[in-house]
């Protein structure tokens, strides 16, 4: 939409951005809120000035009353504009982490002062879709690691479009962007058997197709016959997973790549693959303590995080 305001551009933006809000939930306070007349406001203001001159000269009281009435409406509308933005609340931010290169979808829940006229939202490189109770922001990402949201500018011209009020909000929390995934990674490296830890007390030699039942394994995979016969909790694994004989330790050296970013991309791809195949995996990055092999969402998050911040 055409933002027909003369005010917030360049210098004005830089000046006012210093007072950006940083928290959540957030409601602009008076010092974070700026207001200026729009071009329309200036045009009508000048017209009113001339009307005032003419009507005062002839002391035509009706004309004077009309002029002052319109002037008052203009001024009251400025207060409304100010209040409209001040009553706008940003409540909650939800974002699922994404891999670098993907677009970050952010859902910002808000409480606009009313639903018939929603304040506008702008931000650098942002695609914005406003709804009654939330805003969807689409932000392209390029690098892994911490990402700071670009400052968002909330603008309102409610109710008459003669004044524009704006306020900046820049979230203080950073969002984590996972590393990019290599598109066609080589298959998982030769399995590196980890010496059995206390978690895996049984030898796996004679149970090639069965694994020790683990928390999270579906009940349908439990090998009930063996359970009945031997009292051991084991679970079956589909054909494709049979190759994996045990937990994997994915090491940076195994990628065979000199370039750090490429290596991290490959590791990321492997981790995701391993998680998909339910092969327990661990991670070892150069110069950092290794993460013991495991499976599950928490573990995956932990590994991806380690890679993102490496």
């Amino acid at each position: 939409m055409n933002l027909d305001s003369i005010a917030p551009s360049g210098r004005m933006d830089r000046l006012t951005m210093k007072r950006a809000g940083k928290t959540l939930p957030w409601q602009p306070d008076r010092r974070q809120l700026f207001i200026l007349p729009t071009r329309g406001g200036i045009i009508l203001g000048i017209a009113l000035l001339f009307m005032l001159l003419g009507s005062l000269n002839y002391n035509n009281n009706l004309a004077i009353a009309l002029t002052f009435f319109m002037t008052s409406c203009l001024l009251v509308s400025a207060i409304w504009t100010h209040r409209h933005l001040q009553d706008c609340r940003l409540l909650e931010l939800q974002a699922l982490p994404v891999h670098a290169g993907e677009s970050l979808k952010i859902r910002l829940f808000w409480q606009p002062p009313e639903t018939s006229y929603l304040p506008e939202i702008q931000g650098l490189n942002l695609q914005v879709a406003r709804h009654d109770n939330h805003i969807d922001l689409l932000l392209p990402t390029h690098h892994r690691g911490w990402l700071k949201l670009p400052p968002l500018k909330l603008t309102s011209r409610y109710p008459l479009g003669l004044f524009v009020a704006w306020s900046w909000w820049r979230y203080s929390r950073k969002l984590l962007i996972w590393p990019a995934v290599e598109i066609q990674p080589p298959p998982l490296p030769r399995l590196q058997t980890v010496p059995a830890k206390s978690n895996y007390p049984f030898s796996q030699g004679d149970l090639t197709e069965l694994q020790r039942w683990q928390a999270g394994d579906p009940m349908s995979r439990v090998a009930w016959k063996i359970l009945a016969r031997h009292g051991q909790w084991l679970s079956r694994h589909p054909e494709g997973e049979n190759e994996s004989h045990g937990p994997l330790l994915l090491r940076e050296e195994d990628t065979g790549l000199r370039d750090r970013e490429a290596a991290i991309s490959r590791l990321t791809a492997w981790i995701l693959e391993a998680e998909r195949l339910s092969i327990p995996y661990g991670l070892e990055l150069r110069g950092q303590p290794s993460i013991a092999p495991a499976l599950g969402e928490a573990h995956l998050t932990c590994c991806l995080e380690r890679l993102a911040l490496a």
């Binding site: 009281n61 002052f68 009435f69 002037t71 008052s72 409406c73 001024l75 009251v76 409304w80 109710p159």
Partner: peptide
């Protein structure tokens, strides 16, 4: 509502 709120100021200015 806006016009009503503008009335007191109008009277004062007048």
């Amino acid at each position: 509502r806006l016009a009503l709120q503008a009335l007191p100021l109008t009277v004062a200015l007048f």
